[in-house]
Design a protein around this nucleic acid. Structure first.
Length: 854
RNA sequence: GCGGGAGUGGUGAAAUGGUAGACACGCAGGAUUUAGGAUCCUGUGCCGAAAGGCGUGUGGGUUCGAGUCCCACCUUCCGCACCA
């Protein structure tokens, strides 16, 4: 007969029953009153931690993914609080953006209404989830108090020449009727609405992130071990640095040379033609001076190219197309006349928009040469042996004459490997690497080329032709002047939506706000505000600094506060921002460092990219019919059970399939743990030392292990260990030393303190039932007693030839000889050895004996 | 093609080179119950009646000892990709 079961059914009021709703209600009210997570005391001299969750976009209520992210961040925040740190754990809303505007259009309301309603709902869900946020530092990027500082940031960049306007072919989403940054085009489609992206030539604002490309790639080294390797790899990929050389080619009938970029300067003697991107200025210029026939062919070709969708264009199995434009370039190393072609496999905005084609040693060039029957010249003998490298051709192959032919045009396979240079004048005989170095030297000496690198990263296009964003603080005069709005006139607030045509039409709705738009300058000229708004990724590129001075009306952030708190110690969020937000934030951080406003160059120390919450193997969505609503889960199981399930499901970076986990099981466990707090009959002052030693050992082993496991983010294992402890306590209460034993209290208190990270309501209530005033949040983990970490008995494993044959219970201090003797005496071991000869005995007292036989 | 991961029971998952499968879910049996989808207990990798054997994607290697380290391969997921 168990007392706890009788209590449950006997108490009609449920005071002794684990009543989730009652416990939640009670503690929510207390926490509102006590504000245990405020960081407003400037005299607080505890060590500090800055724990940050990526702030949400208010697109409705919180969903399961939010719940996971906020649970994980909250466990980290609550842990460091338990460890005696002053923990800053703020929250805010990324509240500008398209969905609000689209919802507003659909319903004929102001986007503010939709946005702030959703924020209120999300805020209440976060409170219910018991996320330990500091509610005094809340920010919304759509508040003028926030976006004023976006405009400040823009002007800072503008001052330094890092915000500029240029005309260029840009990504255009025909559905959202706005331009997109490269990072927002996914597989040729709009990241937001999934429609095919087209190209448009427009004059737009850019941030010059490419000035920081080297630092953005080099500083990734600092993040190794702190960021997931795949995020680092994705950023490295995205920035895409290639090193090689620029080579200047003279062109017949043109004064200036044409410069090409190549990663293979060693193959310059193998160049047999030149290719120019069809949509480049260079192509247009070269064609303009060519024959009328060429001009017509080119015009036709350009039109075809521009009709090709981004997706088709990227299909590399597509046959090569192009037109010869009857112009010639001169190879600077051998004076050969190379025909110039225009082809869409060369991109206008990468490198210089023109390449030297070396078909013998490049697949694309070879495909093109074969299609148009252009000459192919091998300049590296890839069959020739290279000292110190693994030979591609074995001596046996050489002997038998089985040597691959050096004839790419016949085989269709370019020679990409290493070898010895041929047909290359003074470079003959060199290896690939030496040939590259030597060629760069030669080019440099003659002033016709130089070492160079180029990036895949493009400048960040930040203009958007939409309403719900930060107005760009620039005035345009009719005579074409660009006038930055003075700092003291910020913020430029968004006008109301009244009277504005909000329909997407390719130009910003703000262009129609005439009263807002037209400004008379001090010199009497009339200027117009820039009608575009900023990409919302500008808002989120520095928000982690705004939290530090969230209510400061005089500056974006106080450098002294940044010095105190930043950079962020732990950043938690989805992998979806591996490139976008994280790259932009790193860029802006480096810029602010250069401005002398902060003293660090990377914004986020540890990055935890949590997995996704799925249902039956795929991402949840209404259309798939597998949507699990967070609010339903919270209603059904309670916040603690949902949080615990998130933490227990597996490693935090792994996906969780909600069909595979058991919130009901979590709730069951929490009830079981909670009941312990009612069973404990000893007083808080009880003398620990008198307690059951076996249970104390379990408790103290967990005290010793928990911090390391939590800091390694092994939350699932910590929860498992707490479950083990709960099982052990239950046994001692029911069939051991009983509920009055000191070890029962000691262990139950540890259960409560560790559960306070995962299940704060249950833990707070347990703490109260254990006889303490509110404050479990900072109760702390006691130091483990080292004498209790030594076991009184260990299991020694006896192996024969590496296979376990017996297990012996021995003293942990047993010496090797004694253990070996015991092992040799074991029945099972003797039987297993049989009549074989023992050749070696390895003894690792007290754990292992391995007897090797022959 | 380039880059980064991952392969362990029916399922989610554990495991400083030293007892593989901790802790759960599920399932089976039992106790208590008018009943239980509550609570508690027991069992549960596979084969085998048992003794025992076999087991961490495959094949090699290092080691007294390998899920863990090394090499090759297979399968899978993700990111980038006509990037010169």
């Amino acid at each position: 007969m168990n007392d706890h079961t009788r209590d449950d059914s006997a108490d009609e009021l449920g005071v002794n029953a684990y009543n989730v709703a009652r416990i939640q209600e009670k503690w929510l009210a207390r926490w509102d009153e006590l504000k245990p997570f405020s960081t407003s005391d400037p005299a607080d001299n505890r060590p500090r931690k800055y724990i940050l969750d990526m702030f949400p976009y208010p697109s409705g209520d919180l969903h399961m993914g939010h719940a996971e992210a906020y649970t994980l961040g909250d466990v980290i925040a609550r842990y460091w609080r338990q460890q005696g740190f002053n923990v800053l754990h703020p929250i805010g809303w990324d509240s500008f953006g398209l969905p609000a505007e689209n919802a507003a259009i659909k319903r004929g309301i102001d986007p503010r209404v939709w946005t702030y309603d959703n924020i209120a709902q999300q805020r209440s869900s976060m409170r219910r989830l018991a996320a330990s946020f500091d509610w005094d530092r809340v920010l919304h990027t759509s508040d003028p108090e926030y976006y004023k500082w976006n405009q400040w940031l823009f002007l800072k960049l503008y001052e330094k020449g890092l915000a500029y306007r240029k005309a260029s072919w840009v990504n255009w989403c025909p559905h959202d009727q706005t331009v997109l940054a490269n990072e927002q085009v996914v597989d040729g489609r709009c990241e937001r609405c999934d429609n095919l992206v087209t190209k448009k030539k427009l004059t737009q604002w850019y941030f010059k992130i490419t000035d920081y490309a080297d630092r953005l790639i080099d500083d990734l080294k600092q993040l190794e071990g702190f960021w997931p390797s795949r995020v680092i790899a994705m950023q490295r990929n995205w920035i895409g640095r290639s090193t090689g050389a620029e080579v200047d080619f003279r062109v017949d009938g043109r004064d200036a040379a044409v410069t090409v970029f190549t990663t293979r300067p060693d193959t310059l003697y193998g160049a047999t033609f030149m290719v120019v991107a069809p949509d480049s200025d260079l192509a247009a210029e070269l064609v303009a001076a060519s024959t009328p026939e060429v001009q017509k062919n080119f015009a036709d070709y350009l039109e075809t190219v521009q009709r090709t969708s981004e997706i088709d264009r990227q299909d590399d199995s597509r046959p090569k197309t192009g037109v010869f434009i009857d112009r010639f370039a001169i190879n600077p190393v051998n004076g050969e006349r190379l025909p110039i072609w225009v082809a869409d496999y060369v991109l206008a905005d990468y490198g210089t928009g023109a390449i030297m084609a070396v078909p013998a040693h490049d697949q694309r060039d070879l495909d093109f040469a074969i299609t148009f029957d252009l000459p192919v010249r091998v300049v590296i003998d890839t069959n020739a042996p290279i000292t110190g490298a693994i030979p591609i051709i074995t001596p046996e192959q050489l002997e038998a004459g089985e040597v691959p032919p050096l004839d790419p045009k016949a085989t269709g396979v370019p020679l990409l490997g290493d070898g010895r240079m041929i047909n290359s004048g003074s470079l003959d005989g060199l290896s690939k690497a030496n040939g590259q170095a030597k060629m760069i030297e030669l080019l440099q000496a003659q002033g016709i080329g130089r070492a160079a690198k180029t990036f895949r990263l493009r400048d960040w296009l930040i203009s958007r032709q939409r309403y719900w964003g930060t107005p760009i603080p620039i005035l345009h005069t009719d005579d074409g002047d660009e006038i930055p709005v003075p700092f003291d006139q910020l913020p430029i607030e968004l006008p109301g939506t009244e009277g504005l045509d909000m329909q997407p039409k390719g130009t910003s709705p703000l262009g129609g706000a005439t009263a807002w738009r037209d400004v008379t300058l001090p010199d009497g000229r009339v200027a117009h505000r820039d009608p575009d708004t900023m990409d919302t990724f500008v808002d989120s590129s520095w928000y982690f600094l705004r939290y530090l001075s969230a209510n400061d009306a005089t500056q974006a952030f106080d450098p002294a506060e940044a010095e105190k708190w930043a950079p962020v110690d732990h950043y938690v969020g989805g992998i979806t921002h591996a490139v976008l937000h994280l790259l932009y934030s790193r860029f802006i951080t480096k810029f602010l460092f250069d401005e002398g406003l902060i003293s660090f160059t990377e914004p986020f120390g540890q990055l935890l990219t949590q997995g996704m919450v799925q249902m039956n193997g795929s991402a949840m969505s209404k259309s798939r019919g597998n949507l699990v609503k967070l609010s339903d889960q919270l209603d059904e199981h309670g916040s603690d059970a949902v949080r615990l399930t998130m933490a227990f499901a597996g490693p935090p970076e792994d996906d969780i399939d909600w069909a595979d986990v058991s919130p009901a099981g979590s709730a069951k466990f929490l009830a079981r743990a909670w009941r312990l707090s009612g069973d404990v009959t000893s007083a808080p002052e009880v003398e620990w030392k008198t307690g059951d030693v076996a249970l104390r050992r379990v408790t103290h082993r967990l005290l010793a292990d928990a911090p390391g496991m939590i800091e390694a983010l092994k939350f699932n294992v910590v929860v498992a260990r707490v479950m083990e402890l709960v099982n052990a306590i239950r046994k001692v209460i029911d069939s051991g030393a009983g509920p009055a034993d000191a070890a029962v209290r000691e262990a139950t208190e540890l259960v409560a303190v560790l559960l306070s990270l995962f299940a704060p309501y249950t833990a707070a209530d347990m703490w109260e039932r254990l006889g303490y005033p509110p404050g479990i949040e900072t109760a702390g983990l006691r130091k483990p007693d080292p004498t209790l970490l030594v076991e009184d008995q260990v299991t020694a494993v006896i192996q024969v030839d590496g296979k376990v044959r017996d297990r012996l219970e021995v003293s942990p201090t047993i010496d090797s000889d004694e253990l070996e003797a015991l092992a040799r005496a074991s029945e099972a071991v003797i039987r297993s050895i049989g009549d074989r000869e023992i050749v070696n005995v390895i003894v690792r007292a007290p754990r292992v004996v391995n007897i090797a036989t022959k």
